[in-house]
Design a protein around this nucleic acid. Structure first.
Length: 686
DNA sequence: CGTCGTGGTAAGGGTAATTGTGTCCA
DNA sequence: CTGGACACAATTACCCTTACCACGAC
């Protein structure tokens, strides 16, 4: 966003607003904002001279570090009528001088009080009326709904948290405040006027929701972690003493009020734990049906007062009752069927079909409707989450995610499984490290592929006639034992790179086996007849005669290699064809015709060996897939910038969790730390 | 005095992640 | 028999919304 000119005496940083930053020979930094440029950001109806606030910030992570100088300036216009202004400031530390001189301070923003509501943190996006409304009542919401407003609910996405953190950071810098907790817990209402409104920019959430989120984020008595038995005992005593005065109980325990409240909900003197007895299940079902006026066999997933249910069941808490009902009992009673692998594929396809921009927009009720193996909408949602979690860096991959899962990854114990439409395998064998691979389909006994030291070989294979799986095994022992735990799978159409890297082998990324799956290859590109797919295509190039292949294999019988261990087996890459996916999809009532047509190809193609075609992959997403051997990401082969959003701020909740996990690891059993005491004092001030 | 905006509490429905447990299999 | 891997049930820390209320400004 900025250009930096450097000469012996001055450095000029130009920004989108053409504010210039210069440095004179004495080390003073001079900011200049010409009048015409300033006008650009004035609102049309601005009458009073705007109160300009210059905010210098670095996009560097370290800008939030205390040790890094942060320059924040408030500047008034030179005169009432002149919109231009000039600021001269002296950098307070040498480091700051250096940074400016080196051009690492890259962001200059001009904020004007009158403009706060017009400038969103994301740029030109209009500020939602929703985010400026406090509304907590149904009437408030109805009113906004009637005006055509829609807003976000549910869990905050990573993007939203980023926006929020960014807004807070900007607010702090603009006012020269170091710590947001000063505003949240120490300032009076009057002093923090506009704080919540300002930081709600770009967030299509009610102000109240933003307020709650911020309070939680910065309350260090939140996220303290697991309750110790001592804490539980103390909690019970405090509960008897103070009743439902959660604030008092929380203060005594060094926990937030909501935390102790939630913990008490889990405690019930009469509660059983562990497996439910038949009697309990029977009672739960009776109570649920009675309270919801439904009949046994009816599907009941909403409108249940679980507190009331638990009261009647007697031996279980409301959470236990809810969990048991939604995850098992209701499904069992209404004649549900077992969840299969096909269901799992179907789930991914259906979510892809929905084409929703945000995971929160998925209507799980609708998705679960008429799906007998789905235990409840809530259960289905958690199923989706389980699938997503199989990808190690799923948190860094923002939704819309379904296309990412179309080359569906499932890492089982011994193989990486890729479910993908028509595919195009493209091997980039490690330089000088020949590898032997085996391409298997259910209609063939296996196609051994030996990749010699030639730079790159592309294998093109298309969907076989019948639904089947294609498995690619990396077989070369010396390769496997040393470096081929690293397998990269690139899928061009969904633009996904799946990469597995062994922890014990992070230095060998250069020699990793690379596999490209092109899912949008036209059948006309591959005129070879299907019968070319035969095992003897490269019979003499099999380097390891001890390898044996079961002639007919299926999912349960992945090829076994008589003299190879599980490390080697793990290197299999399995590709399912679109027919299989379509087939399973068609089993469902509402088979998406557009999906089917998109994934089914007419012709059959055979594998051919070609020279690698130069291929450009834009906007690809990289998923790091954990392996049974504890794969980790290697930074040298992954262009992180193309994958992960550049994040310069950390959600205090997440940060705290990370710190907490370290603390737990080192000092178990100290429920109230000195930190929490400090926070308690802090909050008491509040 | 009534209304409105803001900020606060408690209750309860919910999610996400971890932990516990039973089962299978080498 | 045993230990490891796995799936799934159970648990729990934390999240979010809703209803309701207090209080000061107007």
């Amino acid at each position: 966003m900025s250009t930096v000119e450097e000469d012996s005496d001055t450095v000029t940083v130009e920004t989108v607003n053409s504010v210039t930053l210069t440095q004179d020979t004495e080390g003073n930094l001079i900011l200049h904002c010409p009048q015409n440029e300033a006008d650009e950001i004035d609102s049309e109806d601005s009458i009073e001279p705007p109160h300009k606030r210059l905010c210098l910030s670095s996009e560097d992570d370290q800008s939030i570090d205390d040790s890094t100088p942060c320059i924040s300036v408030v500047a008034l216009p030179l005169s009432e009528n002149d919109q231009s202004f000039e600021v001269t400031m002296t950098a307070t530390t040498e480091v700051a001088d250096d940074e400016v001189t080196e051009g690492t301070v890259t962001q200059i923003q001009i904020l004007q009080n009158e403009q706060l509501d017009e400038i969103s943190p994301l740029g030109n996006e209009e500020v939602s009326a929703v985010s400026q409304a406090w509304f907590t009542t149904k009437e408030d919401k109805d009113s906004l709904t009637n005006k055509g407003h829609k807003w976000k609910q549910g869990m905050w996405s990573k993007e939203e948290i980023d926006i929020l953190m960014n807004n807070i950071e900007r607010y702090l810098k603009a006012r020269g405040i170091k710590d947001a907790t000063e505003i949240i817990f120490e300032m009076s209402k009057d002093e923090r006027k506009d704080f919540y409104r300002t930081i709600a920019w770009g967030l299509n959430r009610p102000l109240f929701a933003v307020y709650r989120r911020v309070l939680r984020m910065y309350d260090d008595r939140n996220h303290v972690g697991k309750y110790t038995p001592e804490e539980i005992e103390k909690l019970k005593e405090l509960r008897i003493k103070h009743g439902n005065d959660w604030a008092t109980i929380g203060a005594a325990l060094g926990r937030s009020a909501s935390s102790v409240k939630d913990r008490c909900r889990l405690m019930k003197d009469t509660c059983n734990t562990g497996k439910w007895t038949e009697e309990e299940e029977k009672r739960l079902a009776e109570v649920v049906h009675e309270l919801t006026s439904t009949e046994p066999g009816d599907i009941v997933t909403q409108g249940v007062s679980w507190a009331a249910v638990a009261e009647r069941v007697g031996t279980r808490s409301e959470k236990q009752c809810r969990s048991k009902w939604l995850n098992y009992l209701n499904w069992k009673q209404s004649g549900g069927t077992e969840w299969t692998k096909e269901d799992e594929i179907n789930l991914i396809l259906r979510i892809a079909e929905l084409d929703v921009a945000d995971e929160n927009d998925i209507n799980w009720d609708l998705l679960a409707e008429g799906w007998s193996s789905v235990r409840s909408p809530q259960w289905l949602r958690s199923k989706w989450w389980t699938i997503k979690r199989q990808i190690a860096n799923h948190k860094d991959v923002s939704f819309p995610a379904p296309p990412l899962f179309l080359p569906y990854l499932l890492l089982r114990s011994e193989r990486l499984e890729v479910l993908c439409p028509n595919f195009h395998l493209h091997f980039c064998p490690p330089t000088g490290t020949p590898g032997t691979y085996l391409l298997q389909t259910s209609s063939s006994q296996g196609l051994p592929l030996t990749l010699t030291a030639s730079p790159t070989v592309t294998l093109t294979a298309a969907a076989p006639a019948s639904p089947e799986q294609i498995i690619v095994h990396a077989l070369s022992p010396e390769h496997l034992l040393n470096t081929s735990d690293n397998v990269t799978v690139q899928c061009h159409t969904p633009r996904v790179i799946i990469q597995t890297v062994a922890t014990e082998d992070i230095t060998s990324s250069i020699s990793q086996a690379e596999l490209t799956v092109d899912s949008d290859i036209q059948s006309s590109d591959f005129p070879e007849p299907p019968d070319a797919l035969e095992a003897d295509t490269f019979p003499d190039e099999i380097h390891h005669p001890k390898m044996t292949v079961e002639p007919s294999f299926n999912d349960a019988h992945v090829s076994k290699f008589s003299d190879q261990n599980s490390t080697e087996l793990m290197n299999s890459v399995m590709v399912r064809t679109e027919e299989e996916i379509s087939d399973t999809d068609l089993k469902q009532e509402e088979s998406p015709s557009d999906l089917a047509s998109a994934y089914v190809t007419e012709g059959l193609e055979s594998p051919t060996i070609e020279e690698q075609v130069d291929q450009t992959i834009d906007d690809e997403t990289i998923l790091i897939v954990p392996s049974p051997h504890g794969f980790i990401q290697t930074s040298d082969v992954i262009d992180a910038e193309s994958v992960l959003p550049l994040t310069t701020l950390t959600d205090p909740i997440l940060q705290h969790h990370q710190e907490e996990s370290n603390i737990i690891g080192s000092s178990l059993g100290s429920p109230v730390s000195e930190d929490s005491k400090d926070v308690e004092d802090l909050v008491n001030c509040h």
